[in-house]
Amino acid sequence: MSSGPFRFKQFDIRQDRCAMKVGTDGVLLGAWATVSHRPGAILDIGAGTGLIALMLAQRSDAGLIDALEVDDDAFEQCVENFEASPWNDRLFCYHAGWDEFVDEMDDRYDLIVSNPPFYAADYRSDDETRAKARSNFSLPFNELLAGIPKFLNPDGKFAMVAPAAEEARILALAEANDLFSERILRVRGHEGAPVKRTYFEFGLARVPVQEEELTIELDRHVYTEDYIALTKDFYLKM
Score class of each variant (00 low, 15 high):
Asp233Glu: 14
Ser125Asn: 09
Glu128Thr: 02
Leu54Ile: 03
Gly50Leu: 00
Thr49Glu: 04
Leu145Trp: 02
His221Ile: 03
Gln210Asp: 11
Leu28Met: 07
Phe141Lys: 05
Glu182Ala: 13
Lys157Thr: 00
Gln15Asn: 09
Met1Ile: 07
Val207Ile: 15
Ile148Val: 13
Leu28Ser: 06
Thr24Ile: 14
Glu83Met: 13
Ala159Gly: 04
Gly97Pro: 09
Ile216His: 06
Leu214Arg: 06
Asp103Gly: 10
Ser181Leu: 12
Asp16Cys: 01
Glu217Phe: 02
Glu166Pro: 10
Met105Arg: 14
Gln210Arg: 11
Arg38Gln: 14
Cys18Lys: 04
Val79Cys: 02
Tyr227Ile: 01
Tyr223Trp: 01
Asp226Thr: 05
Ile42Thr: 14
Asp73Ser: 06
Ala121Asp: 15
Tyr235Pro: 07
Asn153Thr: 15
Asn142Gln: 12
Asp16His: 14
Asp122Tyr: 11
Pro140Cys: 05
Val22Met: 04
Gly156Pro: 02
Gly30Pro: 04
Gly23Trp: 07
Leu144Tyr: 05
Asp110Cys: 12
Tyr227Glu: 04
Ala229Pro: 00
Met55Gly: 02
Lys196Arg: 15
Phe75Met: 05
Ala193Ser: 15
Leu91Val: 13
Gly192Gln: 09
Lys232Ala: 13
Ala131Gly: 15
Leu111Ser: 01
Pro140Ala: 12
Asn88Ile: 11
Asp110Glu: 14
Ala131Thr: 10
Asn115Leu: 15
Pro149Val: 01
Ala96Ser: 10
Tyr223Asp: 06
Phe11Gln: 13
Pro154His: 07
Leu91Phe: 08
Ile170Thr: 09
Ala74Arg: 03
Asp73Pro: 01
Lys21Gly: 00
Phe8Asn: 00
Phe158His: 03
Pro149His: 03
Leu218Ile: 07
Tyr223Leu: 02
Leu144Glu: 04
Ser3Met: 12
Asp106Ile: 01
Val35His: 00
Ala62Phe: 03
Lys9Tyr: 04
Phe151Tyr: 02
His190Met: 11
Arg220Leu: 09
His95Phe: 11
Phe137His: 13
Val35Met: 11
Ser181Val: 12
Thr129Pro: 02
Ala162Gly: 14
Asp126Ala: 11
Val195Met: 15
Glu213Trp: 03
Ala174Asp: 03
Glu69Gly: 03
Ala168Tyr: 08
Ser114Thr: 03
Arg169Val: 02
Phe202Gly: 11
Lys157Ile: 06
Glu143Tyr: 13
Gly30Ala: 10
Leu218Lys: 14
Glu211Cys: 03
Arg134Ser: 08
Arg108Lys: 15
His37Ala: 01
Leu111Met: 12
Asp44Ile: 11
Ser125Gln: 09
Glu83Lys: 13
Phe8Pro: 07
Leu185Ser: 02
Ser125Cys: 11
Thr198Tyr: 07
Gly147Asn: 00
Ile184Met: 08
Thr231Val: 15
